[in-house]
């Protein structure tokens, strides 16, 4: 399979935060969910990919090219949505578009108008008069209108209601039908990813905890619920995170380790991505 994005041993240090030797890749034609708690390093990673920050070490390749030396041809093929608004507030939607469009060699005005219709964007409205959700829709319309092969979305769903989030997921599904596009999408609303994502990369404290196929990940863990009485020191050591109260405990456990409970009466469940994120973040 062709790699669209390769991040190899990338580090970046700030005061009080370090992105530590992160590595992961994304294949052509797939969707990756990039998850982690606030402050874990999601946005920093995305800013490094987009060359908005200078990395201390490591290598980032996009479409097989170096993201610093080949920045211009790479960015022509990327559609991005950042968490924060980066448009000129005093311009109208249409004026802003006219400024952005010439930067892209494959800009498609018909597609942009189509999305404006779909997203109910009024071309004559000023950016500053748009709601947070509508600003997000505007960035999305721009990102989707120049035949990008890689979409990089940083928390695209955070200001959006569930109805539009659902619509967005359908749009993304439609985007990958032609097998040539890939999407990387950071969020902490993991329910959006539960179904759509092919791969999940989980970052915590500046380190990659895992990066793998979603289905494999969900099969690798189990949620165990039972009586607190059975939690001996030995058993506790094997668990990846425990929540206890006077009625019992709930814990995340490696699929293979669930046999340690074979002698006890416990309930096992498939974990959700959210449960995995909570238990593996080590902040219970």
């Amino acid at each position: 399979m062709t790699k669209i994005l390769e991040i190899n041993g990338v580090s970046k240090e700030f005061k009080g935060f370090k992105l530590d030797n992160i590595t992961f890749t994304l294949d052509k034609g797939y969707i990756m969910g990039f998850i982690g708690p606030n402050g874990a390093g999601k946005t920093t990673t995305i800013r490094l990919i987009m060359n908005l920050l200078k990395k201390d070490s490591g290598e980032i390749k996009i479409f097989g090219m170096d993201n610093v030396t080949d920045e211009v041809p790479i960015k022509d093929r990327i559609g991005f949505v950042y968490e924060e608004n980066y448009f000129y507030e005093h311009l109208t939607v249409n004026k802003m578009k006219e400024i952005i469009a010439p930067f892209y060699s494959r800009w498609d005005d018909n597609k942009f108008n189509e999305y404006c219709g779909k997203f109910e964007l009024t071309p004559k409205k000023k950016i500053r008069d748009l709601s947070k959700g509508t600003k997000m829709k505007f960035s999305l319309a721009i990102a989707l209108s120049h035949n990008a092969e890689l979409l990089i979305l940083d928390e695209p769903t955070s200001g959006l209601d569930p109805v539009f989030r659902d619509k967005l997921m359908d749009i993304l599904r439609e985007e990958i039908q032609d097998e040539n596009k890939s999407i990387i999408f950071s969020t902490h609303i993991t329910s959006d990813l539960e179904k759509i994502a092919d791969y999940i990369t989980f970052i915590n404290n500046g380190r990659i905890v895992f990066s793998n196929q979603k289905d494999i990940l969900l099969e690798n863990y189990k949620i165990i619920k039972g009586d607190t009485g059975i939690l001996t020191e030995e058993i506790r050591k094997e668990l990846l995170g425990i929540k206890e109260n006077k009625f019992g405990f709930e814990a995340l456990c490696d699929y293979e380790k669930q046999s340690i409970f074979s002698k006890f009466e416990v309930m096992t469940e498939k974990p959700s991505l959210e449960q995995m994120m909570v238990y593996l973040s080590g902040k219970l």
Binding site: Y30, M169, I176, Q177, I196, A197, Y199, K214
Partner: peptide, 17 residues
């Protein structure tokens, strides 16, 4: 696999498997 994944609203890797 991509069509089926879209219609069932699940990931491509799942239908592929």
């Amino acid at each position: 696999i991509r069509n089926l994944a879209r219609d069932l609203r699940i990931s491509v890797i799942t239908t592929k498997r």
